[in-house]
């Protein structure tokens, strides 16, 4: 064998992009998103800890249910839970090979997210009209910071979903499995964002 023959392709595919690595049982993006979510847990964990510290250190702390719109937030909680379900449906439809239905469910998820954001905008508007701003007191400071950051996460999710609904869907033709994986990964992120809200809701609105 001479040197020429030993030269194969210079650019190798990155392995385990689509299929799980046998000994770890996951494909790359799935491990990646879990790690990313771990860091998100630390981010929101730090913020929740700050909330606890500020609240226990404060002389007075307003009750969330007296200051905020609980029914609207309950409705929003419901909406987000629905969106978590639709995203799973989208993924399972894609696994069955049904792009059309998958897209419908993705659209439903986006719709839920938009409803959530619109409600949130109403809430914010209401608070501003009541002259409740972040600087009013630490309750509103943490309320706006946490829900604002959560809202940014929702917006990020919407952008990614829109991408996979539109231009990203071309991947389906080339590699449906990979596309399905992508939706699974975004779905995991989306569940996390919902989960954060499930924590935020009682902590800010009910306690």
């Amino acid at each position: 064998m001479d040197a020429h023959a030993s030269v194969g392709h210079a650019e190798l595919e990155i392995p385990y992009n689509v299929h799980p690595r046998p000994d770890t049982g996951v494909y790359n993006a799935k491990l990646g998103i879990w790690l990313f979510l771990a860091s998100e847990v630390m981010l929101f964990g730090a913020l929740f800890s700050s909330l606890i510290l500020l609240r226990t250190g404060a002389e007075t702390w307003p009750r969330g249910y007296e200051m905020l719109n609980v029914p609207l937030a309950t409705f929003n909680t419901f909406i987000l839970i629905v969106s978590s379900v639709t995203v799973v449906m989208a993924w399972s439809q894609l696994r069955l090979g049904n792009l059309k239905k998958g897209r419908i469910y993705i659209s439903a998820t986006i719709l839920c997210a938009l409803i959530f954001l619109v409600n949130k905008a109403f809430e914010y508007g209401h608070e501003f009209r009541e002259h409740n701003f972040p600087k009013t007191n630490n309750f509103f400071a943490i309320y706006f910071t946490l829900t604002g950051l959560h809202g940014l996460h929702i917006i990020g999710g919407v952008i990614v979903f829109l991408y996979f609904l539109g231009p990203g869907a071309k991947m389906w033709a080339r590699d449906p499995e990979r596309y399905t994986n992508r939706i699974e990964v975004v779905g995991l992120y989306w569940h996390f964002v919902d989960l954060v809200w499930i924590f935020l809701f009682p902590v800010l609105y009910l306690m």
């Binding site: 790690l35 771990a38 860091s39 998100e40 630390m42 981010l43 929101f44 964990g45 730090a46 913020l47 700050s50 500020l54 701003f133 972040p134 600087k135 007191n137 630490n138 400071a141 943490i142 706006f144 910071t145 950051l149």
Partner: peptide
């Protein structure tokens, strides 16, 4: 890096709020 940086990110956001939005964290 993965687990220690996010709390600083949280802190940076809070300090930004203190500086820009006038909060008192």
């Amino acid at each position: 890096l993965l687990l220690a940086f996010p709390p600083l990110e949280a802190a940076a956001v809070l300090q930004l709020m203190d500086r820009v939005a006038g909060t008192s964290f």
